[in-house]
Every structure is written in structure tokens, then in C-alpha cells.
Design a protein around this nucleic acid. Structure first.
Lengths: 143, 143
DNA sequence: GCTTGCTCCTATAGCCACTGGAGGATGTAG
DNA sequence: CTACATCCTCCAGTGGCTATAGGAGCAAGC
């Protein structure tokens, strides 16, 4: 028990906000750490690593439940990594789909903005395209 | 009062789900329609148009508050469309940024998945990159 | 007229992943 | 010893819906 960090320190070290760390403990993503006499949480290096893992996973868009799985895989290093691979692949597919749909969105927004003659609302492409879905080329964008 | 539609019909016609229509009424995005003797909502063509406008705006990723503004602009056709233009432009910037960050994410996920030798978790790139943010090239992806 | 089954009504709670605030206890520097 | 920062718990709020419970209305067939 040499290098116990306070929650503020581990927050700073990992980039995960203090209330978020407590939240992760509450939902069982981070094990409850030991406490000091004064009832304060004390974290060690392993906890910090786990939080970094979680943060990075969230940045990549993995859901909490997927992170739960990934963490449990990390805890059992002898196991096949097929499941981790599958989770990452699924996320990759999602990301690719999102990029495609955002590009369609980008195109339509560009059409709207370019078509805007900066006149009256009466003849504004922005409003008009929004009002009439028939004027929209891409009926499949959804995010 | 010839063509009053029930909520189910206007839902079908516009692609907005029934509970969502009631929700929009609750938050003041759609005006409360007249009711029948039996206390049922009756919608007309204008309401359907408004819902289509809202749905399309949501599909393009506009927030409810922005849609509120866009709708109020639509109601005053003589006004300058500068504000609508600004909202659309801001959204376009957001979308472009999101595409950029998703592409960085895509690249990293691809690196993870390709690097996976389908062996043990011990040597799995997926787990390893997640654990060590230093191995990640793109420190700025955030969604 | 009666029953069946669909649509509708309200009110309330839940979803995700946090984020913020109130109100109080503890730790630390000067 | 006094500020002040940090910590604690508990609870409420965010956005944009979605779902459920428990009931009322309505149209069609028998």
C-alpha cells in the first residue's frame, strides 16, 4: 500500500472525471477501492490502467457492456481473443456506416447552404428542403 | 373540418411515431390539435407538413431547439433567411468535424483488427491498444 | 345489442452515459 | 486555528425519445 492515489489524482492521471469514476464504480465497471480512515477512496496503478483502458474504449465508441467484456478478457490473458476481435470488428462496421451516412448528410447540407440566396425565407433553400422531403436526394441518412 | 386525421394516420403519413408526436406536443414543438368528442387528437395537412419538416430536420441532426428556430422562421416568410443559413452552416461544420474524427477512429479500429493475430489475449492488438493509449496514433478522436 | 379487437387516452418510468448540485466531512498549508 | 481544497453521499437533470400500465372509445361482425 505504498502509492495510493486520491480520486482527484487518478482523475488527473487518466483524464476521467471524478464523478465519472464514482459512476463507474457504482455500475460495477471499476472495483470499489479500499478507503482511508477518513473514508476516502485510494487507487493504485492497476486502477489507473483500468481507467485508461475504459477511457480509450469510450473514445473509440464502445458501449459500457462491451467494455465490460473487453475488460474481463484482459483479465484472462490465456484466452482466445476472438471475442475482442469480434467486438472491434462490429464497431468498425458501425463506424463505416456512420461515415457513409454522415457523408450523405454533408452533401445535403451543402446543397442547402449553397442554394441559399441570402434573401427572404420565402425562397430559402434551407427551409424549402427541410419542408419538402421530396427535394431531398438521400432518403437513407439517419444520424 | 373535413380532413381531420387521427394520430395513427398522421404518424403513418409522416413517419413520426405516435408517442413521439405526443412528445413533440408536450414540449411545444407541435401545437395542440383540436380534439374529437371522444377526446382524440385530430390533425390536418398543416400539422402533417410540420411533422415532416421536423422529421427531416432531425434526420439531418438538428437539435430540437434549432428546429424550433427553423420552424418559427418558416412561419414568417418575409424575413431574411440569414439565421436559417447560419444554423445549417453550423451543422455542416459539425458534420464535417464528425466525419474527420470518425475517420481517425476507423483507422485505429482497422489497425487493431488487422493487428489481431487471432491468438491469445496475451498478444492481442485489440486489447493492447486499448490498454496503452500511447500506442494510439490519434489522440484527438472523441465520438 | 354485444362482443372482439384495434386504436386511442393519460401518467409515469426507463433508456444511455454521464454531469451537476446540495450539504456536510476531512485533509492540508500557512 | 483558520481558510480552503478536496472528498463524501444522495439525488436530480440532460436529450430525445420509448415503453408500460391501466383505462376509454370506436368500427365491424354476429
Amino acid at each position: 500500500m505504498s502509492h495510493g492515489m486520491a480520486i482527484g489524482k487518478v482523475s488527473e492521471a487518466t483524464g476521467v472525471k471524478v464523478p465519472t469514476i464514482r459512476y463507474y464504480e457504482q455500475i460495477g465497471l471499476l472495483p470499489p477501492p479500499p478507503r482511508t480512515e477518513g473514508n476516502r477512496r485510494t487507487y493504485d496503478r492497476k486502477d489507473a490502467d483500468r481507467l485508461t483502458f475504459i477511457r480509450h474504449s469510450r473514445e473509440l465508441g464502445f458501449e459500457i457492456d462491451q467494455i465490460r467484456t473487453l475488460l474481463s478478457l484482459q483479465d484472462r490473458p490465456g484466452q482466445s481473443c476472438g471475442e475482442a476481435d469480434a467486438i472491434a470488428k462490429a464497431r468498425l462496421v458501425e463506424v463505416k456506416e456512420k461515415i457513409t451516412s454522415l457523408k450523405a448528410l454533408e452533401a445535403e447540407l451543402e446543397r442547402m447552404v449553397e442554394g441559399c440566396s441570402h434573401g427572404r425565407v420565402e425562397s430559402c433553400q434551407v427551409i424549402e428542403i427541410l419542408a419538402d422531403h421530396g427535394k431531398c436526394k438521400h432518403h437513407q441518412h439517419d444520424a
